[in-house]
Nucleic acid binder design. Structure first.
Lengths: 225, 225
DNA sequence: CGGTTGCGAGAGCACTGCTCTCGTTTCTCA
DNA sequence: TGAGAAACGAGAGCAGTGCTCTCGCAACCG
């Protein structure tokens, strides 16, 4: 998309990439709170102040890592649904959630960065919401296709009782029945609630076979849908 | 339970309390990553090194705050179920989850401390698991009573397919049917998944009326149970 | 070729957690 | 009651952090 002409510009994108790579490496080791600009600079053999030529500060570096993480998990989710086109809904659903959990397990610090406690005093800039909704949109797309294939049906008796669902932006765009949207959001929160609990240690001394338990729970969620 | 005799011991428990109080105040302002021992010492008018007479380090102070937070949310949950004894299950369920969410909203930094990303390099000591399971036990107790009152019934066709549920410690102790335990854990993860999403901003631009939406979702969960 | 701009290095500031030492106060026990 | 031991607060100091500023050098562009 861009052809950096001058050697300067080329070195700039290259170094920006290297800084982010070193930051990700460090993130995997010590986590977000331990991420140190000076350590990154040391690893790259440059002065700490030189980093500021590429990122205005630590927060901006974190923002870059956050958008990258959102993009990755979103792409993983999209790939999972795309690879299972035509299969029954429950299979596609399990593929999607397994892909999400797999990425989270393989990149737990990145997951904690985007789905864990927000950094106080750090407001996620608007740039992050685009990548952030990719995995949500993948779920929504899967749901829309499932409704179209009658794998998921609306149960009229569970209509929106107090109108709160009409306020959900998703419902307006997707033209899904209210109760389907409601159950869809429930599945959404449960997926990430489960993964967070598993990664953050809340299942400790409660669950033994994480893999089987995850499949069990998600099958249940899928059937409820 | 303890009667500190000497003036020294009395001053010690007093100062320990004050340090924790100052820490909580600071926690509410700047969050866990910004919690500074020196700032606490300044607020209390003592030398920073004096703090170390009461807490071996920052981690131990955090641990104390964590157990306190677990205890608080656990007590809130227990109070909610105790106050609704005799009512139908769905009412008790809504009271419980509303209490949990209410505490989380009022103490979002404490909530982030215990249900958000774990601090890397910091392993929660065994002291924390006792208070940590209080709210889980409150939910479990509510479930047991509901089954006894036939508000929640086992559906045999959802029996444990692959035996993964037998590994759950909860199932062994509570003598609940496997499928009820499974749905109970699902409700558990969904409650905290929902609250975390709300607090950590994942519902941003998706949900407008948080209160109504929460009740809506939790009613759905309760009915599934 | 000369001026402008981008860049890296280094010093420096204010801050952090934590350690060590040094008097002083308080407790304990003979 | 008095001497030794234990606890305590204060201060200096160390290594580390994010970030700013200045100063030369290199690259770019008209």
């Amino acid at each position: 998309m861009n052809a950096p002409k001058t050697a300067r510009a080329r070195a700039r994108v290259e170094l920006t990439r290297e800084i982010k790579a070193a930051a990700r490496r460090q993130l995997a080791e010590v986590g977000a709170p331990g991420l140190s600009l000076r350590a990154i600079a040391r690893e790259l053999g440059m002065a700490s102040s030189a980093i500021y030529r590429y990122f205005p500060g630590r927060d901006e570096l974190l923002t870059a890592l956050i958008t990258d993480a959102y993009d990755e998990i979103g792409q993983v989710a999209e790939a999972a649904t795309a690879a299972t086109t035509g299969l029954p809904f429950i299979d596609r659903w399990l593929a999607l959630v397994s892909a999400v959990r797999g990425w989270a397990l393989a990149n737990r610090h990145e997951y904690a960065l985007i789905y864990g406690s927000p950094v106080p005093g750090y407001a996620a800039p608007q740039d992050t919401v685009g990548p952030a909704v990719r995995v949500t949109m993948a779920m929504l797309k899967l749901l829309v296709e499932a409704v179209r294939a009658c794998d998921v049906v609306s149960r009229v008796n569970q209509a929106d009782p107090d109108g709160s669902l009409e306020r959900i932006a998703l419902a307006a765009e997707s033209q899904l029945p209210n109760d389907v949207v409601s159950r869809g959001v429930a599945a959404w929160t449960q997926l990430f609630g489960h993964v967070s609990f598993e990664l953050f240690g809340q299942f400790h001394t409660v669950v033994e076979d994480y893999d089987a338990f995850f499949i069990d729970q998600m099958t249940q969620v899928g059937e409820t849908l």
